[in-house]
Simulated assay, not measured.
Amino acid sequence: MPYKPQITDVTKAGSNEKEGLYEFIIHLADGTDCRVFYNRFPEWKMTALSRLGKVPCPVCRKDFICKCMDRFSDDFDQQMRDGEWLNKAVESE
């Protein structure tokens, strides 16, 4: 069964609003957390994605840093846009 990440919540972890740089923590339905970076100018664009090492990777089951989540960056980006997670997380402060 192929892995399909599902975003359940997004929190803003940091920002440099002057430069339009934002860091978010994405919480997934399977308990995995990922850190994602976005640049807001000229429009929202994902610049980096990494899994936080709190639980083993749901894809390769390794409990150390891996690059498995990079394969799903388009899925994450689409969910962030479709669910309006970017605007919700920025406005929540």
Rank of each mutant, 00 (worst) to 15 (best):
E23W: 02
E19V: 06
K45L: 03
K45P: 01
M46N: 10
D30W: 03
S15A: 13
T47Q: 05
T47K: 09
E17Q: 11
G14W: 06
F24N: 03
E17K: 00
I25E: 11
S15C: 10
G31N: 10
K45C: 07
E17N: 07
E23N: 13
K18D: 14
T47N: 03
G31P: 01
E43K: 14
K18L: 10
K12W: 00
D30R: 01
D30E: 11
C34H: 05
I26L: 11
L28N: 02
T47R: 08
T47W: 01
E43D: 12
P42T: 12
L28R: 06
K18H: 12
N16R: 08
Y38P: 11
L21S: 12
R40T: 00
I26D: 02
H27M: 00
T32M: 05
I26C: 08
P42K: 05
V10I: 09
H27K: 06
P42N: 11
W44L: 04
K12S: 10
R40Q: 15
T32Y: 03
T47E: 05
A13L: 10
Y22H: 14
D30Q: 05
T47D: 03
D33W: 03
K45S: 12
E19P: 01
G20Q: 03
F41S: 11
G14M: 01
G14K: 08
E43R: 11
F41P: 00
C34S: 06
K18T: 11
Y38R: 08
E43Q: 15
R35G: 14
F41Y: 15
W44K: 09
N16E: 09
T32K: 00
A29L: 14
I25W: 00
I25F: 03
V10K: 07
N16I: 01
T32S: 05
A13R: 09
E17C: 02
S15G: 11
E17H: 01
N39A: 14
L21W: 07
F41H: 10
T11Y: 08
D33V: 08
W44Q: 05
G31K: 04
L21K: 15
N16D: 15
E17T: 04
G14F: 00
D9T: 06
Y22Q: 10
P42C: 06
S15L: 08
L21C: 09
L28P: 01
G14S: 11
I26M: 09
C34P: 04
C34D: 10
T11M: 05
L28V: 04
K45G: 01
F24D: 00
A13H: 07
T32L: 02
H27Y: 15
V10G: 08
H27W: 09
E19D: 14
H27L: 00
G14N: 12
C34I: 01
E17A: 07
A29Q: 12
K18V: 05
I25K: 07
F37T: 15
F37Y: 12
F24A: 03
T32H: 04
T11A: 13
Y22V: 12
T11K: 09
I26A: 13
V36C: 08
T11D: 11
E17S: 06
I26F: 10
R40M: 13
E17L: 04
T11I: 09
N39K: 13
I25A: 04
Y22M: 02
K45M: 11
V36H: 04
G20D: 08
E19C: 00
L28G: 06
K18R: 10
G31I: 08
E19M: 07
G31C: 05
E17I: 03
T47F: 00
M46G: 04
G14L: 02
